[in-house]
């Protein structure tokens, strides 16, 4: 028996919007720790990892570890039928091939049940070791989204270079080039607007903007985004979900020639 009741149903809606363009079908794993997912995009260039910890749910019952295959587009369609302020409950009986999404409005006078078929998905699960990254940048999530969107109108790839002074995003295309530098900030009154750089070694890596733009669909989940980079490793873009966990995207670099 699985029963997960989340007071902020809008959060689950945002989580699905942040994953559905990258991944079609994925297994959600439910354990006493929480509700999680790890999935690669169809071209195996990017990976998304989601954790919603059990403590973040108002009620969390998961009698045994269970893996439920779902089509993320269909799940997003069902969750779009929930109001942003609705309480959302996920329910599944042991051995059932369906999951039920129950939506309750805040005044609790409207209750909706949506039942979705589960799928058998044969997915690979990658072991991602904890790594010390050479450069870590924390910056406003909306600013990062704006940069990725703007640069993708000029070129297909972005060179991200981190130094002690700041982080530079550069691209080039048929019409010309673009460079955006975000200097590290030192304000203390508005930490959500700060650009913070922890750098052991300067790093410069090239990535496909198409994927970065897809990751920025998670922007509504967090005010800040953390970008971790090391030479010869995939970058990690993390949006922390307050009180619940995180959504992390891993993206393999491109080889500059």
């Amino acid at each position: 028996m699985l029963e997960l009741r989340l007071l902020q149903g809008g959060l689950l809606k945002k989580v699905l919007e942040a994953m559905k363009d990258l991944v079609n079908d994925a297994n959600f794993d439910c354990s006493p720790t929480g509700f999680s997912l790890q999935a690669m995009d169809s071209s195996h260039v990017a990976l998304v990892s989601l954790l919603l910890r059990s403590e973040g749910f108002e009620h969390y019952r998961c009698d045994r570890n269970v893996s439920m295959g779902m089509n993320l587009n269909n799940m997003a369609k069902m969750l779009r039928c929930a109001g942003n302020d609705d309480i959302v409950t996920l329910k599944a009986d042991d051995g059932s091939d369906c999951i039920t999404f129950m939506f309750e409005n805040p005044s609790q006078d409207k209750i909706a049940d949506f039942e979705m078929k589960l799928m058998d998905i044969d997915s690979e699960h990658l072991g991602i070791p904890d790594a010390e990254y050479q450069s870590i940048v924390r910056m406003p999530a909306a600013e990062f989204a704006r940069i990725c969107r703007d640069l993708s109108t000029i070129g297909d790839t972005v060179l991200i270079s981190v130094s002690k002074e700041g982080v530079q995003f550069s691209t080039r295309g048929d019409m010309g080039t673009a460079n955006i530098v975000c200097r590290r900030t030192t304000t203390v009154d508005k930490p959500e607007e700060d650009v913070i750089i922890e750098m052991e070694e300067p790093v410069s890596l090239t990535f496909a903007l198409r994927y970065l733009n897809s990751f920025t669909k998670a922007t509504p989940l967090a005010t800040q985004v953390t970008i971790s980079m090391s030479s010869d490793l995939p970058m990690v873009i993390e949006y922390r979900i307050e009180g619940m966990g995180y959504i992390r995207y891993y993206l393999a670099p491109k080889i500059d020639e």
Binding site: L126, T157, T206, A252, P253, E257
Partner: peptide, 14 residues
Amino acid sequence: PNEQFNISLFYADL
């Protein structure tokens, strides 16, 4: 011009 790495090259399959 830029070759794209596959992410499964970096992490072991569990």
